[in-house]
Structures are given as C-alpha cells and as structure tokens.
Amino acid sequence: MEGVFSLNALAMEPETRALARGLRRREPDLLEALILRYEYRLYRYLLYLTGSAEAASDLFQETWLRVLTRGHQYDGVSRFEPWLFSIARHLVIDASRRRRLVSFEEAFEPAEGREREPRAADAASPLAEYESRELANRLGEVLARLPGVYREVLLLRFQEELTLEEIAVVIRAPLSTVKSRLYRGLSAARELMEDKRP
C-alpha cells in the first residue's frame, strides 16, 4: 500500500530511535502501524487491569490519543512497550478514580467480539473449546480476586514478559518493590489456584 508507514523500512537504524522521531513528528502512518501492532496486547492488558471490556475499549483509544499528544516524551532509548503500558496504567488509575471498574466476567465473553491469537486447540474439538473457556473463566476468577497491585505486576511479568527493570518503570516503583509484589502475587495466585482446582 503506497504511503503506508512500514516499521521494517526503518531496519537500518535502531527501531526505538526511529519510533521516537516518528512520534515527535506525530506521523499518522507510524501511529496506525503501532495501533495495529499493539492492539491485542494493549487491549488484553487494559482488560485484565480494569476487568471491563467497555472500559478497556475506551482506555485503549485514550491511550493512543495520549501517545499522539505525548509522543515527544518517549526517549527512543528504552523499549516502546514499557512506555506504552505506563501510559495505559496511568489512564486506568485516572479512570478508576472517576468511576468504578467492574464486571470482570464479561471480559471473557467471546460472543461479543472476535478471537485474536487463537490457540491450535480452539479449532480442534468442542471439548478443547470447552476446556479453553473453563481455563479462561478460572483465570478470570483468580485474577479478579487478586489485589490490583499484585495483578498488574504478574501481568506485566508473565503475560507481557517485561523485565523487572521495565516493570519498575511502568509502575514507577523501586526494583525491590516490584520483586516483593511479584513474590507475594505469585504466592497469592498459587493459593487461589489451589482453591479453584476442580
């Protein structure tokens, strides 16, 4: 497609630096490419954090508007993901001050939208589909019962696969706090999983 910004076209220089330059210039094609690239991960992160599909959709859009207006603040040295998740997290905090974020279960209702990154098992059999749904429900319940401070570090570490240092940047906390929250979160999640074991 002519005129469409390609992240691969910038392979000659560090991608983060090219990203920072494009964000400073508010290049529409770059932003479109980023929205598509991070659609699933950002939405998933917001969904797990807020527990509401509606709130996650609203915050998804707000996050990208914030990326547009604050793009010049991205340094181009560190990875883009922690910066993006940091913006999203702040918006979640702002939103939770404005309204209560509830209805965690609706987040796992596949009838409302399309499935992304389906696993091979999804198409295998009705049994596999049922197990997948069960798995999602159990996870949803466990995460919903975890305190938010533990839930967010667990998501960033094990779902988004950020480093401990990157998580510290996202949640603006010392590394020691990140570690202790991870340890406590793991312990709490394990206990909840034991309770939920069929």
């Binding site: 699933y40 796992f108 996870l139």
Partner: peptide, 10 residues
C-alpha cells in the same frame, strides 16, 4: 493459564 488464554478483541 496467564500466557495461553486468549481474549476477545472488540
């Protein structure tokens, strides 16, 4: 579970 579960994107 955390890694493998997929969510529905609107």
């Amino acid at each position: 579970m955390l890694r493998s579960v997929s969510v529905a994107v609107p």
